[in-house]
Design a protein around this nucleic acid. Structure first.
Length: 385
RNA sequence: GGCGGCAUAGCCAAGUGGUAAGGCAGGGGCCUGCAAAGCCUUUAUCCCCAGUUCGAAUCUGGGUGCCGCCUCCA
């Protein structure tokens, strides 16, 4: 059976062909650790968790990497507001991330690289970009020159001319930061240190990495020059993922990822969730009111690329749905064990049993042998029960 | 304004040429001393217009609407 997926890069559904037979390398752009995770982060993590589980269930050996951005202006801003350090803030919210995701039954990735742990790789990439003529130093910063990368815009379907024309009215000419750039769409690879901010030594002087470069460096370090899946929220397509492609492919000359997958955004009561609208819902706040598995079911009932409206009515519906489903699953679980069903079908491959619902007894091998068992396993797999 | 995506009942969603699955919510009913649970039953012509076809939610063309991105964002 072939697996077909929508690839943002080609704007079409394609048949999945792994780079290496039987193996999948996937990278998901994670969070910037400056606040508690909201429902949008929750959706992203749940959706890609299911893809990962599904691929494993299909028998692929999956390596799943997700990053934490722990160097960033917003983290610094929060640290200075609290009178603490950047590390203190990011540590706290990374810990909170793991708490939230565990409650949502999101399985941990295989590794969680952080920007602060990837400085060597980042500096090497910036250096190589500079050597190849894609980057230039400017007053302590280093910028990527988008005009030198012929494929710039291929992921988001934007042309540099259109971008420049569309932005002509809003590029802040007075901003001293933008005056360091040769082109308004050039972006920072390395930012020179400001007084009192954390900084790392480099050949361009003390400073810190820009946002986009860390992902290019981490993918290269943990998964290789080309990977199968690169995922993230749809709002990352431009500029973040576009810039990652520009950085990585300029250096390696190879595709960064064969398939680019993006999930839809979360709305709240019909409006886009944003801090300015004040309808920003954190995962932990939502879980005070709703069962985590009901939230998970709600997210998974919707098509992953569509916008998802978080309404109390929809959550009540999902809560009821989960209640019914859970009873059925518990019934099936007991029945499978009582009947001593065994897995003797050739495919898909046997797998480790799911974690029991809400704690419960230790997992036992899940036996199944007929269509009922297969379907049931599929439901368990997809829900991540 | 530019680029991209989506459009089936209150919400989610199956369905890829033959007269619209299912779930949740809502209405009606059964059961019960009451309640809960459970059970039964009920709710759409598929955004609009034109075309292709014996026949279209499913194909073609044109509209409309919604969403995202174009600035930090999952």
């Amino acid at each position: 059976m072939t697996l077909t997926i929508y690839n943002t890069l080609t704007r079409s559904k394609e048949i999945f062909e792994p780079l290496e037979p039987g193996k999948v390398r996937m990278y998901c752009c994670g969070i910037t650790a400056y606040d508690y995770c909201h429902l949008g982060h929750g959706r992203t993590c749940i959706v890609w968790d299911v893809v990962r589980r599904y691929l494993e269930w299909r028998g692929y050996q999956v390596k799943y990497v997700q990053n934490f951005t722990d160097i960033d202006d917003k983290i610094l801003k929060r640290a200075s507001a609290e009178g603490t350090s950047m590390a203190e803030v990011s540590e706290r919210f990374i810990a909170a991330y793991f708490e939230d995701m565990e409650r949502l039954n999101v399985r941990p990735a295989d590794s969680y690289p952080r920007a602060t742990q990837t400085l060597d790789g980042i500096k090497r990439l910036v250096y190589e970009l500079e050597q190849k003529g894609y980057a230039y130093a400017s007053q302590g910063d280093v910028y990527y020159s988008v005009g030198n990368f012929a494929d710039y815009g291929k992921l988001s379907g934007k042309k540099l001319e259109d971008l420049q024309a569309g932005a002509s009215g809003r590029v802040e000419v007075e901003n001293p930061e933008s005056q360091k750039k040769q082109d308004p769409f050039d972006f920072a690879l390395w930012k020179g240190a400001k007084p009192g901010e954390p900084a790392w030594e480099s050949s361009w002087g003390a400073g810190r990495p820009g946002w986009h470069i860390e992902c290019s460096a981490m993918v290269r370090e943990h998964l290789g020059e080309t990977i199968d899946f690169h995922m993230g929220g749809g709002d990352l397509i431009f500029p973040h993922h576009e810039n990652e492609i520009a950085q990585s492919e300029a250096v390696t000359g190879k595709p960064l990822a064969n398939y680019w997958l993006h999930n839809g955004m979360v709305m709240v009561e019909g409006e886009k969730m944003s801090k300015s609208l004040g309808n920003f819902v954190t995962i932990r706040d939502a879980l005070k009111q709703y069962n985590p598995m009901a939230v998970r079911l709600f997210v998974l009932q919707a098509q992953y690329r569509k916008p998802l409206d978080f309404t109390s009515e929809a959550l009540v519906a999902a809560t009821n749905g989960w209640k019914t489903l859970k009873e059925g699953l518990l019934f099936g679980y007991g029945r499978a064990i009582n009947n001593k069903w065994e897995d003797n079908s050739p495919s898909p491959n046997p797998r480790t049993p799911p974690t029991p619902l809400g704690g419960g007894p230790p997992p036992q091998p899940i036996p199944w042998r007929n269509n009922f068992g297969k379907r049931w396993m599929r439901i368990l797999t997809l829900l991540g029960v």
